[in-house]
Design a protein around this nucleic acid. Structure first.
Length: 135
RNA sequence: ACAGCAGGUCGUUCUAUCGCUCGCAAUUUUAUUGCGUGAGGAAAGUCCGGGCAACGCAGAGCACCGUGUUUCUUAACCGGAAGGUAUUCGCGAGGGUACAGUAUUGCAGAAGAAAAUAACCGCCCCGAAACUUGUUUUCGGGGUAAGGGUGAGAAGGCGGGGUAAGAGCCCACCGACGAGCCGGGCAACCGGUUCGGUCGUGCAACUCACGGGUUGAAAGACCAUGUAUAUCGGAUACGUAGGGCUGCUCGCCCGAUGCCGAGGGGUAGGUCGAUAGAACCAAUUGGCAACAAUUGGUCCAGAUAAAUGAUAGAAGUUUUGCUUAGGCAAAAUACAGAACCCGGCUUACAGACUUGCUGUUGUU
RNA sequence: GAUACGUUAGCUCAGUCGGUAGAGCAUUUGCCUUUUAAGCAAGGGGUCCCGAGUUCGAAUCUCGGACGUGUCA
């Protein structure tokens, strides 16, 4: 996976009800404002990081607002996957990004925040995963 | 020209780069490439009505809930259209609201004499007593709805006759109600006319007519997984315990899969349902209209932790400011995101176009 | 997606088969006390979530809207 592509297909999305349930029950989490990231090592043999977005209905009543925020977050991840994935050979993980700020923002804010969140996630994954070596 | 009323239509566009859903095809092999495709008038609120599905249903009565002017429309409706009556807002074009019945029973706070077989004050008559001896006062009996600080509502209105004083007590006119006749209208109803003194209001209960089985796609079907109302022991004993039929009663049906004790699981999802329909567009015909019929054409999202996007640039529209003008600058560019599907209703909405009509001002 | 309910004083709630809006706590003032607390007495404080309608009269009944809360795999 040396060549970077910006695709974000169905198989890179976290879709199973059960996996999400496990994620919230047994997953680790940290905050990289305005995001909260919940993650767990992926035990099955998928070939990708699996990713999902959530925006609380409590804070954004209208479906239009929620959709817009989710799309921006998804876009930010799609364009900055490299931060997490480039030259990474350790254990893969599933993670969910939850938007916890109470106001919408410009796309650039999302992009910068996403970079910070992904570097933080990468560090956490590699330090906890003692069995593998980092290049 | 400006202001407005009623109806209808639309509700941003283009380019570049990187992406997403679904379908088809190809390559190769479980990912990539190419082509096509992809939100609304309200997709919203979930307020009505259907389709569809499961379960239930011998039947009858009562209860409960909903609706309530007429005719039409529709698959159906608490929808829509055209009317009717009353009321209300507007100078007007027009808009809003209400509408089955009242035989019986009940309620109507406060205020007021009295809130429904009305005598507190007043007015009038009769009798008695008192003395201040008269158009007097007091007491008692009766008549009386013309007048009286109230009130949403006070026993049709107004004038005349009549009377002790009064009263539809009688009469004329007006209003309402009931009955009859004539004309118009499919009908609600409207207009005219004759007769009858028949003449207080509102809201409930109640009565009448019509409709209503329950639950909603998280319904449900199939596949996969699973020994899964598993299995063992005991008590009860035959239509018994109990259950079902929206609630109740009658009645009918089912009925050991129930009770007690011991004991033992699984949860991983997928496909269908689910997108060709009371569909949409155009024309013609019928109808005041809602709407219907016929002919021709079109295929128009189908996701499921849930696609329809992000970034950059340009254009359009509106408002404001500056400017003689051309133009320049700034700001704004709505409401809002399908989740089984239709028909309505309601609510939100920057703005644009269009048809008919009304008012004001000016010109001819 | 479906469905059930709530909104009344600063807070927690009564009042909902129509008729002057209440209780407890809090708050203000006075009394008591050396002072505070407690106690006693008096008072203030209301867009009854919003807008229409029915009615003589609406917190209550009807319709529409806003916000909030629960239940169902």
């Amino acid at each position: 996976m040396s060549e970077i592509n910006y695709r974000l297909g169905k198989n890179q999305k976290l879709k199973s009800f059960k996996v999400i349930g496990n994620l919230f029950q047994g997953g680790n989490s940290f905050i990289a404002y305005p995001f909260k990231v919940v993650w767990l090592y992926n035990e099955s043999d998928t070939r990708f990081f699996r990713f999902s977005v959530s925006v609380p209905k409590r804070k954004y009543k209208r479906a239009v607002d929620r959709n817009l925020i989710k799309r921006k977050i998804r876009e930010a991840y799609r364009l900055n996957k490299a931060v997490l994935q480039a030259d990474y050979h350790g254990k893969l993980a599933d993670f969910m990004v939850i938007y916890i700020a109470s106001a919408d923002a410009e796309y650039l804010v999302f992009e910068n925040a996403m970079k910070i969140a992904l570097t933080k996630l990468r560090k956490k994954i590699t330090t906890l995963d003692t069995g593998e070596e980092i290049v």
